[in-house]
Design a protein around this nucleic acid. Structure first.
Length: 609
DNA sequence: GTATTTGTCTCGC
DNA sequence: GTCAGACGAATTCGG
DNA sequence: CCGAATTCGTCTGACGCGAGACAAATAC
């Protein structure tokens, strides 16, 4: 435990990736295999079932430290991380105990799951009294079940790969799927032969190939050439269009469907085995040939087209799949790649070869109600493809995927062969009305901001929260402004004078009770600070409501995504949207009367009907 | 003592 | 999913 | 030609939305 805690401190102390890898390698080499295996388990993002809720932990920690709950809460707010707060606040250890990581996990932590509350409390406090501050932090992280700190999976994989002299991509593959940290773990990673290894490999998925965004929007802003000729920009970046295969970018769940040794398995991108969550697919599993791995998208589907993502969401975390859910949210597997055929790894083969074989497989299975081939989007020029992209929402898609002809199926998010070319986001101008402090490195900043638009009563109604999109400098500026113009406090939330205007971008809109406006945005973010606009010039709720997807027969779930843009912009955007120096600071005006509709009439009339 | 609401967590995008 | 920032490696620039 | 400056790719951490599961708190 001491060594593992020291490793954590080392990882936390630097942002340099090479230093992190060096520290990881040192740890892996000097530790007992059983401890190192657990370290890999946690550092690659795996978790044990949670044994104690954070509420209980807070309570026990405050008790043990001898402080009032409110004071503990204050400390927590300041620190921003529960495990760290507890580690810092407790008195020094009284019964120091040095045991390896494996002992703490296997002897102290895992057995707790079946114990009652009182015993858990005793064990947790005993551990706290036995560990020093940094060890406690690790222990707390293990308790809360989330050790996503300091290093991401990829660096651990690199360190492990270098330690065992295995290619990182191969290592990535071997770490996929189910495994338990045991002393033999490392020998199993190096030796793929043997019955045990074969069993483990039976349902093991391949690492997913992920795409990068084709950043047309920012490229347009950055390049004067691009603003006049976006298609030319793409041509310059990607070359001739005939070297690319285009498909729709579907709005479902990425999945890998495996059939090996008579058994089928469905994995999500988050490495969740979800075979039982989608039992309808089992109906055609026996029609799949053995030694097959498909990559594709799990989609809610009816009448020859996808349903909204919200429909699928009702099935994501669901444990009991009822008949009625199968009816309201029927899914299909839309396949777009073939990773394994006849037990052979096909990832190195060119895309077209994989696709051709995939098409044959899908045709032979011949159950279009459950398995389909994701169609190619044909175009003979980038101009034509750009037009097809604009139709994406009509097809229930988010845009296009571009894949280089002849490319292999790669590991992870590698630039060059796969691009996602999403449709442009919807935009709206909204007023900052409230803010809250962030957490972690943003714990001291009012970085968590709520934005509102005008309703027909002339009131500002919240529509979204967003933080991302401002750079550090702007964030600091806004933070200072918020502190100077705060009004009331509602717990940690402070309302502010409605003065600052920001342009928000988002992917879609749906009815929701989350915000007072009755709508919520998907993937909201700040596009730019509209220092040139006064709050009265922000958009109206009516403008926004006009974007809601047409109400389906039952008003429960979201329909297809809207096809309109939030606002028609007659003029090109300022090229220097993010420049701070050229635009005059906003004129601070006296507060206007929120109840007077005259004063809140926007300069841009709502476009609704 | 049971029913309902509220909060927290974990998935997915 | 979104985004900005930090870092390291690769590439270009300038003397 | 070599060191400095710049660009590019990757990695990290801080966050949005909804739904369901589960536990805790509250209402009846």
């Amino acid at each position: 435990m001491k060594e593992f805690a020291a490793l954590y401190l080392e990882l936390d102390a630097t942002t340099r990736t090479l230093d992190k890898i060096a520290a990881l390698k040192r740890y892996l080499q000097k530790s007992e295999p059983a401890d190192a295996a657990w370290a890999v388990f946690f550092l690659t993002g795996r978790t044990l079932p949670k044994v104690v809720g954070s509420g209980r932990l807070r309570q026990w920690a405050a008790q043990e430290a001898g402080i009032e709950p409110w004071l503990f809460q204050e400390c927590y707010d300041a620190v921003g991380d529960l495990a760290e707060t507890i580690a810092l606040i407790l008195p020094p250890p009284t019964q120091r105990r040095e045991e390896p990581l494996r002992w703490w996990v296997e002897t102290m932590l895992e057995p707790l799951r079946d114990r009652d509350e009182e015993e858990k409390c005793r064990a947790v406090i005993e551990a706290w009294r036995s560990l020093d501050a940094s060890e406690r932090f690790v222990w707390n992280k293990l308790l809360t079940g989330a050790f996503r700190v300091g290093v991401a999976r990829r660096l651990v994989v690199r360190a492990l790969a270098e330690t065992l002299a295995i290619a990182p991509d191969v290592m990535e593959h071997r770490l996929m799927g189910p495994w338990r940290p045991e002393p033999e773990f490392f020998t199993r990673l190096t030796q793929t032969e043997g019955e045990e290894a074969q069993t483990a490999a039976r349902v093991r998925p391949y690492p997913f190939c992920l795409a990068h965004a084709l950043e047309t929007a920012s490229a347009l802003l950055a390049s004067p050439l691009g603003r006049n000729d976006p298609v030319g920009l793409i041509q310059a970046a990607l070359g001739p269009v005939d070297q690319w295969v285009a498909e729709w970018k579907w709005d479902g769940i990425r999945g890998q469907w495996i059939k090996r040794q008579g058994v089928h398995a469905l994995w999500t991108r988050g490495e969740e085995l979800v075979t039982d969550r989608y039992p309808e697919l089992a109906a055609i599993a026996d029609r799949l040939p053995d030694g097959l791995v498909l990559d594709g998208e799990l989609l809610p589907w009816r009448d020859n087209r996808p349903l909204a993502f919200g429909v699928l969401q009702t099935r994501i975390g669901r444990k009991h799949v009822t008949k009625s859910v199968l009816k309201t949210a029927p899914v299909i597997f839309l396949a777009f790649d073939l990773l394994e055929w006849d037990g052979e790894d096909w990832r190195e083969r060119p895309l077209e070869q994989r696709r051709a074989r995939l098409a044959e497989v899908v045709a032979r299975v011949d159950r279009a109600e459950l398995l389909r081939l994701s169609p190619q989007v044909e175009a003979s020029s980038w101009e034509e493809l750009a037009l097809r992209r604009a139709e994406a929402r009509q097809h229930g898609a988010e845009g296009l995927m571009l894949k280089r002809r002849g490319s292999p199926y790669r590991v992870g998010r590698v630039k060059g062969d796969w691009w996602k070319w999403k449709v442009d986001p919807l935009t709206i101008d909204a007023v900052l009305v409230a803010a809250q402090r962030g957490s972690g490195k943003r714990a001291s900043l009012y970085s968590d901001q709520t934005f509102a638009v005008w309703d027909d009563q002339g009131r500002l109604v919240p529509i979204a929260k967003a933080y991302s999109g401002l750079d550090d400098h702007e964030l600091k500026e806004v933070d200072a402004w918020i502190r100077a113009h705060a009004r009331e406090s509602f717990g940690p939330v402070r309302s502010v004078e409605p003065v600052l205007v920001f342009e928000l971008g988002f992917e879609g809109l749906q009815r929701s009770s989350r915000h007072k406006s009755g709508v919520a945005t998907r993937f909201p973010r700040i596009l730019r600070w509209r220092r040139d606009k006064r709050p009265e010039q922000a958009d109206n709720l009516a403008t926004l409501l006009a974007l809601l997807p047409p109400e389906p027969a039952s008003p429960t779930k979201a329909g297809p995504v809207s096809q309109t843009r939030a606002r028609v912009e007659n003029q090109p955007r300022p090229a220097l949207a993010r420049s701070r120096s050229r635009i005059a600071p906003p004129v601070v005006r006296p507060l206007f009367n929120l109840d007077d509709p005259e004063q809140v009439e926007g300069t841009e009339p709502p476009r609704s009907s």
